[in-house]
Write a protein that binds this DNA or RNA. Structure first.
Lengths: 344, 344
DNA sequence: ACATGACCGTCAAACGTTTGATATAAAAAG
DNA sequence: CTTTTTATATCAAACGTTTGACGGTCATGT
């Protein structure tokens, strides 16, 4: 605990202040303000209370309320960061839907320090009623321990771990397969795939779909796995794939959006024009795609729905519901732009 | 208030549980765990307490602590969203520095609903000790009211309003001027500027610097103001500027990073090659710039330092310090990439 | 006139932590 | 052998809200 002085400024009005102003007991104020079914109050008293609360600008203290109720009406969201537009879209969706349900949101990223510690603190200190965890970098062991302690308070986003029985995932595998099929349909017989680290669950699922589609379409595939999954990783990965001598791929599948951007840059750096000499398709869509040179073809997944479902599941569990594993059913969809074309 | 059941699961251990396990009074546990100067405890008792706390996985309940202390060791950050890399960089910086200082962070964006309401709630419900406000879309009137209520609890980021006496701003004006001078130095005599809405304080500052530099360098300037400041706004703005008949500009200054990306796209759409036929420079830097086609020249501002200074100011005020208006002193810097060149 | 409700409202305990005041015993000082 | 000091630990109140248990006051039906 860090020492430090209290914030200064005028005291916030309390229930007691409102009660005094309205000439009634605090309990009645509390009931009236919350529309408690037991909030009998004559129309006259009622409006006096409401007026007093309004005049003082009263808002219930969340600490007191949280202490009394043992719940916070607040959800936590842990993200690795905002490195990919996928995460910003997810954050937006979760915040929006939580607000709609009357819940607040506290977001945390890896910038705050050890993510496992962040989650544990939020849960064990009673900061949040449940945690939505969208970080792939937390060791399974830590998650198991967490799930043991708070099985009804942790929801995994786009990740599955044996021990955690609540999760919401997208059809990453199908999306990767769709991308490969799209390229195959365009006549590409030799494609390259750049992926992030296989330690990430999303990556193994994307790799699965990719492999399956490669087999079923009968194309040849070159695959590169990178330590990261950002612009630079895509750039380097594609350079490696293309440098591969005699018979380079005519199309690239990038497993993340930033990697797709990096792939475009790599092509340019190697003097290849897209899509004439190299087609590029990336997983996850974003506005940015339409403004790249050339506009990037992507396969879109329902990220917004992922956030909505995660919030729903968390609230359901808070209400006593059982943990579930949800797959967001919407199909992946190719958003065709100018970075893919039929093989010449 | 939304009704709802409590989260289920095993009860969190309390101070009383630890005290019972260690065979001492709660107050002693509290003092020992916090290294309270009054926490006399024999070495033996002390280790017993520590062991018990560890074994039970005890963490102090923030609601109880917040209630008792009337402070939360938590800061709030309000952003318009994560539409620009500038905001994600800022969020990261703030979270990082807050964590370093032992403070938690709760982030909110416009996705949660009316931003003014969001701020008021966070402050008045005692969710946070202070708010860092980086949204330009809140009316001055609302801010004045806020500043009256909680003058020591609100810090404006990259925005100045008469009524709010605590703010941290970057040298936006100098940055815009630097961009114009960079173009002028390359020999451009006719430049176009695309800006976001003049209702935003940052935009008027950038416009000022731009205008001043235009005068002092003696170049001709065409200016477009857009309703938004995203990719599409940059795209449309630049199209308007270039469509302007006989004598189009040979260089573009984009007032935001996304607008710079849009500018690149617009040039391509109109069949102009960058930088041969049109130079483009944008305000604020990001990794993405290096992976665009062509790599985008930018002028970088110390966004990270903006975040650091803002949390420092907030904490200083919480400690009784007076509100201040800080200008982050670091100079803007041109990051030269391939989207600018000497006029042919 | 008297029980019976229906209304309108108050009481007081509890949530978990912190902290100034206080208690007890042993050691040091006079 | 008192008195003071020091070391160790406890007591109890307070933070602001919620909520089950009561307490009056009227009108109403019998």
């Amino acid at each position: 605990m860090i020492k430090g002085p209290k914030p200064t400024g005028p005291r916030r009005p309390t229930l007691a202040d409102v009660a005094a102003a309205a000439g009634v007991h605090t309990s009645l104020v509390s009931r009236v303000l919350r529309d408690d079914p037991r909030g009998f109050a004559s129309a006259e008293t009622r409006s006096r209370i409401l007026a007093a609360a309004e005049a003082l600008g009263y808002r219930a203290n969340v600490a007191a309320r949280g202490l009394r109720n043992a719940r916070t009406t607040t959800l936590g969201l842990l993200l690795p960061g905002f490195t990919s537009p996928m995460y910003t879209a997810l954050a937006k969706s979760v915040e929006e839907h939580a607000a709609l349900k009357g819940y607040g949101l506290v977001m945390g990223t890896h910038a705050a320090g050890d993510p496992h510690e962040t989650i544990t603190n939020m849960l064990m200190q009673g900061r949040v009623d449940a945690m939505l965890v969208a970080s792939g970098r937390i060791e399974d062991k830590a998650l198991r321990q967490l799930a043991e302690w708070a099985p009804h308070r942790v929801v995994l986003l786009n990740r599955q771990v044996m021990a955690v029985r609540a999760s919401v995932v997208l059809r990453d595998s199908d999306a990767a397969a769709l991308a490969v099929r799209h390229l195959a349909d365009l006549g590409h017989r030799r494609i390259g795939g750049v992926f992030g680290p296989p330690s990430l669950d999303t990556m193994v699922r994307r790799l699965q779909g990719y492999r399956a589609a490669v087999r079923s379409t009968g194309v040849e595939a070159l695959t590169a796995s990178c330590k990261e999954r950002d612009y630079a990783a895509g750039f380097n990965g594609v350079q490696r794939l293309l440098a591969d001598g005699a018979n380079p791929p005519t199309a690239i599948f990038a497993a993340t959006f930033p990697m797709g951007v990096g792939a475009l840059a790599a092509a340019r750096a190697m003097g290849l024009t897209v899509p004439e000499q190299l087609s590029v398709i990336a997983l996850h869509d974003d506005d940015l795609a339409g403004f790249l040179t050339p506009p990037l073809t992507t396969v879109a997944l329902p990220v917004k729905e992922l956030g909505v479902q995660a919030v729903e599941l968390a609230l359901d569990m808070a209400a006593g519901g059982e943990p579930r594993r949800i797959v967001v059913p919407q199909s992946p969809e190719v958003i065709e732009r100018a970075s893919t074309s039929a093989v010449r």
